[in-house]
């Protein structure tokens, strides 16, 4: 039974958010002049601070309505979107400014195996099928990839 829990948990994430995954970004910021996808996949916690700083600075530079930002977290970088992450207040602030946060389901499934349960994620995190695929999709939509 225990062996079934982890795959079932992972399956839950896959099935629970198909619409979110398919969500288009075109309506998010219709007047955005710039589109940026920020990648966080590094185990170094300093990179968490850095990627949030970059998002913050981009918004300050272009203005909230003039730039569309999505932060895609996968691999060890997914810790940024853990529910108890010490950067939660900053994530809340950026989310309020229109920044989207995507969480890789492949990583969630892998971490679930190691933890024995699914990691609790920030409510602002939107699961996507694969972080890398999400980045490729965004690039196809004209987003520029930045890896701080």
């Amino acid at each position: 039974m225990k062996k079934l829990i982890i795959p079932l948990t992972a399956l839950f994430y896959v099935l629970a958010f198909p619409l979110v995954q398919a969500q288009s970004t075109s309506d998010a910021k219709p007047f955005a002049e710039q589109k940026v996808v920020l990648q966080i996949s590094d185990p170094n916690p300093f990179k968490q601070t850095l990627v949030l700083n970059v998002a913050n600075n981009l918004i300050k530079h272009y203005g909230q309505d003039q730039i569309d930002i999505e932060i895609v977290a996968f691999g060890p970088g997914l810790r940024l979107l853990f529910k108890d992450n010490s950067n939660v207040p900053r994530i809340d602030g950026l989310s309020g400014a229109g920044v989207r946060f995507s969480a890789c389901k492949n990583t969630i499934a892998g971490m679930s195996k190691k933890l024995g349960h699914a990691p609790e994620l920030n409510e602002k995190a939107i699961p996507v099928s694969a972080g890398v695929v999400r980045i490729m999709q965004l690039e196809d939509q004209g987003f520029k990839l930045i890896k701080p």
């Binding site: 918004i59 300050k60 900053r90 994530i91 950026l94 400014a97």
Partner: peptide, 14 residues
């Protein structure tokens, strides 16, 4: 409002 929101989030950090 955005600046205040981001500043508040920074201040609220542990």
């Amino acid at each position: 409002a955005l600046s205040l929101s981001i500043a508040a989030s920074l201040l609220a950090s542990p």
